[in-house]
Design a protein around this nucleic acid. Structure first.
Lengths: 187, 187
DNA sequence: CTATATTCATGACGATCATCATGATTGCCG
DNA sequence: CGGCAATCATGATGATCGTCATGAATATAG
């Protein structure tokens, strides 16, 4: 059962895509190779024709999903609004790969750590560019500080089982970031 | 091989203690019941005399380790300094249970989620009390915002494989929080 | 058009793990 | 002080999972 070269490329693309969603939704450990392949419309047999191991899949999925995420370049307030929304909190599978996967990276291979590091680096740079009104030192600090707060708030909000408190964490963090940027800008 | 009543209580205490360290260090999934028991100086056999399941151990360990963590009540700047230090980043096993375990909670049982929610609630309250100079609304916002930033920064710093960037994330987040609190206080 | 190489399906293997059964040791109540 | 009951050790069981072997089907090179 051989398929055309482009069908194979398409299969590979689909594997990375569904793996990205499944990993964000359930975590690396809770998703089996067979589950990924099934979600991609295949069986587990062909897996090792595409990837050398599950760890390899994880690293390549990370690189893929982080490269695809180019959000955060425009207006930082609008970005923070969307990022810190209940909608984003409730959509881990389709949401920010950093929020969904950073914490797990600690237990992954060097290749995965490296992919995540690059993703974080460019995300911080992107947020910095969204703050052109600040001078360089303030810009870097605001980019890193607000990014840490956004990621932390979404992770915390997803852990909380009380909807009111979860909403409040998002909302107050949004206000806190807003305040911080305004104050530094006006300085 | 029966042991005295207090020996059993001591065993149970030790199981919770080593489980707290192991879970923070390696994550819930990567730690087996047998590993916990061995680290506690026992074999896996007695486990189900103390806990009804691994999920039960996770929930009880969370409640235990979160209740034991009463840091953050004093000076917020000093707390943030220690929290956002390389030392804390490099000591997940003995560090803040929230930073080490929040992200994993999403995939755990309701009991575990509930324990974490209570831990977060009291941590936010504790940080709020450390900001008596602010009026109530500002205090709540600053507590939640800076806590989200602290947790996010440590999680991110632990994921990054470039020591310079990792240090920078900690340092800039510290400065960002410091700035934020100063500005609100002076308002 | 044919031979070869490749992609995926089926199925199996070995390891890990949560959980449970059994039994030995021995605290502890009467 | 003797018998009951509880705690832990040893060992087994069933399930899950990563990985690999084999074979069928066919795209593609010559």
């Amino acid at each position: 059962m051989k398929v055309s070269r482009e069908q194979m490329a398409e299969n590979r693309r689909r594997i990375l895509e569904v793996a990205g969603r499944l990993f964000r939704d359930k975590g690396f450990d809770a998703v089996s190779v067979a589950e990924v392949m099934k979600a991609a419309g295949l069986t587990h047999g062909g897996f090792y024709g595409h990837f050398s191991s599950k760890d390899d899949l994880i690293a390549q999925t990370l690189a893929d999903v982080l490269a695809a995420d180019s959000t955060g370049g425009g207006d930082l307030r609008a970005y923070a609004d969307a990022y810190l929304s209940p909608r984003h909190r409730d959509n881990a599978a389709g949401g920010c790969p950093t929020a969904g996967l950073v914490a797990d990276i600690r237990h992954q291979t060097p290749a995965a750590r490296s992919a995540m590091t690059e993703g974080l680096r460019s995300q911080i740079d992107r947020i910095g560019k969204a703050l052109p009104e600040l001078d360089p030192a303030d810009r870097r600090r605001a980019a890193i500080g607000s990014w840490a707060a956004m990621v932390g708030a979404v992770i915390i909000a997803r852990a909380i089982d009380d909807p009111a408190l979860s909403d409040e964490v998002l909302e107050q963090t949004r206000a806190w970031i807003d305040d911080g940027i305004s104050q530094v800008s006006a300085r």
